[in-house]
């Protein structure tokens, strides 16, 4: 971030990105479809399962593949747990950006519980490579439902604790209220999405606008902010965590028995064509534009990262603020540079 300052006030800002550009899109053109799932894992490295789901949905849409119901429910439960984990990390690091050194310890304690659950189901703490084309890699353990219910109770306690510590703290409010405001029209013009857009008052959520997977069977709300400032962007995410736990409750009740994957070939050859798929990542709307020419490797994979557009809007948010607020505004956007640069 290159800032032009006038005393303590920021006059102009120019983000310089590209320091994590790994060439994922070009690499995707040379790998088999099943290998690309691992590359997508590492894009937004905090919400791995959501990225994998977006890519697998794109290939399934292109091929017209039916995913078994049980697999869909497992996918939704894991994605929502991942959303909670991602927002917990955000709350912790945002606290540190604003100067509060304690909440991060609480949120990481809860995150460790979620990561142990992931390890029990998928075999890895991060980079799960679990959601495969056609379903999920394997079935969940037998005591999954009980363990997730226990985890959910612990998580709700942890979220309430962190909320009490941080959200209505005087100093935190002074540092974040009214800081980095953006109005709804500018946010839409820049292409912002996700909690950063919902904090401006725009009720846009892919899970409600275009329900994918089995999201249309659940009853959950979308928290919407009023002012579009940093505190709203933070509190929308705290409330989203509670809604995610609600979805997990309902999914556990409704989960049917059955197969967990539709068997496909190892070397997939989807029909020639193109497809665009939107998903709701914890950071916003991920898009995967997949062009296939009928061979076993894709012709072009374009990833539309949510943090890319959110970062573009930073320039407008940061004008005429103090230098110390610049850190808070950048933190409140919750960007992950792995997906900005791909």
């Amino acid at each position: 971030m290159v800032l032009s300052v006038d005393g303590e006030r920021v006059v102009d800002m120019e983000p310089h990105i590209g320091y994590l550009h790994r060439g994922s899109e070009k690499l995707c053109e040379n790998e088999l479809y099943v290998q690309i799932v691992t590359l997508f894992d590492r894009l937004d490295y905090i919400s791995n399962l959501n990225n994998e789901m977006a890519f697998c949905r794109a290939v399934e849409k292109l091929m017209g593949l039916e995913v078994p119901e049980r697999a869909e429910f497992i996918r939704v439960i894991l994605c929502e747990l991942n959303r909670v984990a991602s927002h917990l990390l955000f709350v912790g690091t945002f606290g540190i950006d604003a100067g509060a050194m304690t909440p991060i310890l609480y949120t990481f304690r809860d995150r460790e519980k979620i990561q142990s659950m992931f390890e029990a189901v998928t075999g890895a703490r991060m980079m799960h490579n679990f959601i495969r084309i056609g379903g999920v890699k394997s079935d969940v353990p037998e005591d999954f439902t009980d363990r997730v219910k226990l985890l959910r109770d612990e998580l709700i306690q942890g979220i309430n604790e962190t909320d009490k510590l941080l959200s209505f703290n005087e100093i935190f409010l002074a540092r974040t209220k009214g800081v980095g405001t953006i109005d709804a029209d500018s946010a839409i013009a820049y292409g912002m999405s996700g909690p950063s857009l919902r904090a401006c008052g725009v009720p846009m959520d892919v899970r409600k606008d275009e329900p994918y997977s089995v999201y249309d069977r659940f009853d959950f709300g979308i928290p919407i902010g009023e002012n579009g400032d940093s505190w709203d962007r933070y509190y929308v995410r705290v409330e989203e965590m509670r809604q995610s736990l609600k979805i997990i409750d309902q999914a556990l009740e409704q989960m049917p028995d059955g197969p967990t994957i539709t068997p496909t070939r190892f070397i997939l050859r989807p029909p020639a064509g193109e497809v665009y798929v939107r998903g709701e990542n914890p950071r916003g709307e991920i898009g995967v534009y997949l062009v296939s020419n009928g061979t076993d490797r894709p012709y072009r994979v374009k990833i539309r990262p949510p943090s890319f557009c959110n970062l573009m809007a930073l320039k407008e948010m940061i004008k005429n603020t103090y230098l110390a607020d610049a850190v808070v505004i950048l933190g409140s956007l919750d960007i992950v540079l792995g997906e900005v640069d791909r």
Binding site: G191, Y276, K302, R304
Partner: peptide, 11 residues
Amino acid sequence: FNYLTCLSVVD
């Protein structure tokens, strides 16, 4: 159409 979702280039 007030929202540009994605702008990509394909070779």
